[in-house]
């Protein structure tokens, strides 16, 4: 059980939340009892790679490849901190 944010940790969307694309809002959202958070484009790009199998390190690599090799490590970690605080993700 890995509970610290590091490159080996594997995040999953918590059972208490749902993550999905909303066509009308043209964006990803997090859904929970009677509530919804609309995610920014970059937050959506990160969370859509969270599948309970891919490690944070692989997610960063994948994002950096897609976005022309820009260093995204800090941004991704910052987002995962917020996601942990809100209980959106759990780590294994």
């Amino acid at each position: 059980m890995n509970t610290e944010l590091n490159n080996e940790a594997v995040p999953s969307i918590s059972q208490q939340f749902r993550f999905q694309w909303e066509e009308v809002q043209k964006g990803y959202v997090i859904l929970y009892p009677e509530g919804m958070v609309k995610l920014s484009g970059s937050a959506g790009e990160i969370l859509r790679r969270v599948d309970g199998k891919t490690s944070i390190g692989s997610i960063i690599n994948d994002l950096e490849q897609q976005f022309d090799g820009v260093d995204l490590k800090d941004d991704v970690y910052k987002f995962f901190e917020v996601a942990m605080e809100n209980g959106w993700i759990t780590l294994t």
């Binding site: 009308v24 959202v29 859904l31 009677e34 919804m36």
Partner: peptide, 8 residues
Amino acid sequence: ELGATQLG
């Protein structure tokens, strides 16, 4: 279809 997401 209009975009409703939360249903009570």
